[in-house]
Amino acid sequence: MSKVVWLWCTLLLFCSSVLHADEPGWTLFDRVQQSVTQYNFDSSFVVFKGSKVETFRWQHGRQDDKEIEHLVPLDADGVDILRRDNVVYYFLTDRPALVTTSDSIKELPAILFQESQQIRKLYTAVLGSSSVMSGHTAQLLRLSANDPGRHSYWLWIEVESGFPLRIDVMSEQQTPLERWLVTHMQITPELPDNLQRLLNTELPEPTARQPGATLNPNKLQLSWLPAGYQLVTDPHIVPQLQQNLLNYWLLSDGVHQVSVFVQPTQRMPTQAYRDGATTIYMLSAPEHDITVIGPVSINVAERIAAAVR
């Protein structure tokens, strides 16, 4: 009997150690999320997607109960984006500003801003080795996807501040698909002067959201979803796309989103592309074409497209 009890206790201790093995990693990840939402900082970063390179200046600050964030492209093309609390402004050169509501800028890495508890359901946090990166001591943190069809993340984090210095989005073969690399970062106790001016500048209020386009009823269904994903019940459809759509689904795992478009067939060959971590998969069926766009593997995108019945 004593041997059985001993084995049972050993099993419980082993399970407990497995459950808590990644807690240091999650503690560090919580520091990362706090650093990009609580600090006053001025930074620049580069995004590598294959042969394509984009550069940005990213500033963030808090004053009393107000939060402000500014993302400026440093290339010739791009959109100037400003967020004040939960109002986001897209400043366009040839049109009036587009005003939306969100608690983060969607063009920044979603993993930095989404609910930590939801991220913990999808990933395992594992600490790696430390290294020197641009004069800063950086700690590697691997967020390994629990499902093989989901991309993993490798984050290099400044030890002193918890600020992310580099984020690699990894394929299922553990090769980088997309890289986000900080080239300059300065944390200050006070709000930068230009953010202070933007905080006090009068800007338009967001307009009420217009009803999304509705599609004609049909018998098409999506019979399979990737692990962790659910259908968004009321996805917004851009009215300009309505006339070309037979059906549309939006999938979300609480961190990422995948769009599924069904259109009349153009009898094009089946094609698959990757734009960094984003997969674009197009399946040509006898009666309709299916396009899947989102941060999933090509195999998962293929299964989603095949699940349209």
Rank of each mutant, 00 (worst) to 15 (best):
Leu13Ala: 15
Thr278Pro: 01
Gly50Pro: 09
Val169Ala: 02
Gly128His: 07
Ser17Cys: 13
Ile280Leu: 15
Gln34Phe: 04
Leu191Cys: 07
Asp80Ile: 03
His20Ala: 14
Arg166Met: 13
Trp26His: 10
Thr214Glu: 12
Val255Met: 11
Val292Arg: 01
Phe29Val: 07
Val232His: 04
Ser284His: 08
Ile105Gly: 08
Leu283Lys: 13
Ile68Arg: 09
Pro286Val: 09
Tyr229Cys: 00
Pro24His: 07
Glu158His: 08
Thr188Leu: 10
Ile167His: 01
Ser116Arg: 14
Asn244Asp: 15
Val296Lys: 00
Tyr281Leu: 04
Leu155Thr: 00
Asn146Pro: 04
Arg84Met: 05
Pro211Phe: 02
Ala213Gly: 15
Ala76Trp: 07
Phe41Gly: 04
Ala306Gln: 15
Pro235Trp: 00
Thr93Asn: 13
Thr55Phe: 01
Val308His: 05
Arg150Leu: 15
Leu231Gly: 03
Gln33Ala: 03
Asn40Thr: 07
Tyr273Met: 15
Val292Gln: 01
Gln196Asp: 08
Arg274Ser: 14
Glu202Ser: 15
Ala272Asn: 01
Pro217Ser: 08
Arg179Ala: 08
Asp253Val: 01
Glu287Val: 03
Asp234Leu: 11
Thr93Asp: 13
Leu141Ala: 04
Thr100Glu: 14
Val169Lys: 02
Asp275Gln: 14
Ser116Glu: 07
Ala277Leu: 04
Val169Pro: 00
Asn247Lys: 09
Val18Arg: 11
Gln118Arg: 14
Asp168Ile: 03
Lys121Met: 10
Lys121Pro: 02
Glu115His: 11
Arg150Lys: 10
Gln266Trp: 01
Leu199Lys: 05
Ile105Cys: 08
Leu251Asn: 01
Glu172Thr: 11
His288Ile: 04
Met268Leu: 14
